[in-house]
Simulated assay, not measured.
Amino acid sequence: MIVRIMGEGQVKLADSHFTELNALDDELLAELERGDTPGFRRTLGALLDRVRELGTPLPDDSLEPSELILPSSDATLDQVRDLLTDDGLIPG
């Protein structure tokens, strides 16, 4: 799956990593619902770090369609709320 981190670029992630990423996504969703800004910042950072660690960066000039778009690390609670679906940021 091709994942874009807003403002950074794209990485290719194996589907096998999504169980771990969904756990972080669930935690992030709970923190958003509670309005826990420090927890949200910590978990968003952890989620993006794992995507960067597990993914293979695509070249900057690559024009692959992104199947998943994640917010930048400096996104606000409200900006992330606007990106959410019923499943959170990550489907599944």
Rank of each mutant, 00 (worst) to 15 (best):
K12H: 07
P57A: 04
R81Q: 00
E8S: 00
A23F: 13
S62G: 10
L68T: 06
E64T: 07
L63H: 12
E27P: 01
S66R: 02
E67D: 06
G55E: 13
E67M: 01
P71M: 06
E31L: 05
G7M: 00
G35P: 00
R50Q: 10
L44T: 09
S16C: 03
E53L: 07
L24V: 01
P38Q: 05
Q79W: 01
V80P: 00
G35W: 09
P38K: 08
T19L: 11
D78Y: 02
P57H: 00
V3H: 07
M6D: 13
L32A: 09
D25I: 07
G9Y: 15
G7L: 05
I2M: 05
L54S: 08
L48H: 13
D74N: 06
D49R: 11
R4H: 08
R42Q: 10
G45L: 11
L77E: 02
I69E: 05
D87I: 03
T76A: 02
P38V: 05
T43V: 08
E33F: 02
L58G: 08
E67W: 05
Q10N: 12
A14P: 10
L32W: 09
T56V: 13
L58T: 04
R4G: 02
T43N: 08
S16E: 06
G92R: 15
L28V: 05
A23K: 13
T56H: 11
T37D: 13
A14I: 01
R42C: 02
L70Q: 07
P91W: 10
R34N: 02
R4Q: 12
R41E: 08
G7T: 00
E67S: 03
R41C: 05
P38G: 00
